[in-house]
């Protein structure tokens, strides 16, 4: 397992047109990796993520995506993801094909991918219109009871990218706190890239902790603060104020583009990105909200 800089890892493993999952349920969202993908100008990606959150709002608005598979697409506790909505409602900056599930179905799809099964199964989507708009949601008859159960095809991303608190020198990765779908997304993928807050000699993992062993990790990158404005339990809190500020920044195409140009495209890496935020606001919307 090599330790690479984030820009090396993205350059080496992320290609145009791939199916890509950046996971982390509210917690440990790999923002730095998303920004690096934007910097390197990847296109035509099929993005997969249960909650697209700000990271996919930014990548979609920056023109990286042709398709999105998801299960809840809002700014949690705040409102809409305006760039996602603009892509779906108006095709800006490019048309976006969407495939949507409910959380339970998407969790089952990742679990099936990790377990090398063709589909995941649940008692789901009863009485809903979801199967009408997503023809991948289908039904089987239980061979034991005869009842009808819902199926979803396995999710097998080309690349999954996660953020964790800690790795050791061999590349074993420790995550703690809300672990969401991390393990399933990791083991469902062909390539697994992980960014971490710190790299240490001894992982110090408690028994039964969530550890991804080095031999399932393709590359580790040391990116402190790499989950901001989401959070890393034990390192820094979720920046709820920024999630609210984002509503104003992302509402208009122009202020969004200016923010991305200044803070993401105008910086060389994540440390530079964080410095640019500390130095000041790129948009009037951000300034007003701060």
């Amino acid at each position: 397992m090599p330790e690479l800089s984030l820009s090396e890892a993205i350059a080496e493993y992320v290609r145009d047109g791939q199916t890509l999952a950046l996971e982390g349920f509210t917690h440990l969202i790999p923002f730095a990796a998303g920004h690096e993908i934007v910097r390197q100008g990847r296109r035509d990606l099929h993005l997969v993520r249960m909650t697209p959150d700000l990271v996919y709002d930014q990548m979609i608005g920056a023109g990286c995506a042709r398709a999105l598979t998801f299960s809840w697409g809002g700014n949690p506790g705040v409102g809409s993801l305006h760039r996602l909505r603009d892509a779906v409602e108006n095709g800006w900056p490019a048309p976006l094909t969407i495939r949507e599930h409910a959380h339970a179905g998407m969790a089952a799809a990742y679990t099936a991918g990790a377990a090398n099964l063709p589909f995941g199964m649940l008692r789901g989507s009863l009485g809903t219109d979801l199967p009408r708009v997503n023809d991948e949601i289908r039904f089987v008859t239980c061979p034991y009871t005869g009842e009808t159960l819902t199926t979803v095809p396995a999710l097998r991303p080309d690349v999954t990218i996660l953020h964790g608190q800690r790795a050791d020198r061999r590349g074993n990765v420790l995550m703690r706190g809300i672990v969401g779908i991390q393990k399933e997304a990791a083991l469902a993928a062909r390539i697994l890239l992980v960014t971490v807050e710190e790299i240490v000699e001894d992982l110090g993992a408690p028994m039964n902790a969530l550890v991804l062993p080095h031999w399932v990790v393709t590359a580790v990158s040391w990116v402190p603060g790499g989950a901001w404005p989401s959070y890393a339990q034990g390192h820094y809190p979720r920046d709820n104020a920024f999630y609210q500020v984002w509503d104003g920044i992302s509402r208009g195409r122009e202020s969004f583009t200016r923010w991305m140009a200044h803070h993401v495209l105008g910086t060389i890496d994540h440390a530079d990105f964080l410095r640019s935020l500390e130095a000041g606001s790129a948009t009037a919307e951000e300034e007003a909200a701060r």
């Binding site: 809840w72 697409g73 599930h101 409910a102 959380h103 339970a104 789901g124 979801l130």
Partner: peptide, 8 residues
């Protein structure tokens, strides 16, 4: 935003 956990 869509379904999230609601249907189940």
């Amino acid at each position: 935003p869509g379904a999230g956990g609601a249907p189940e």
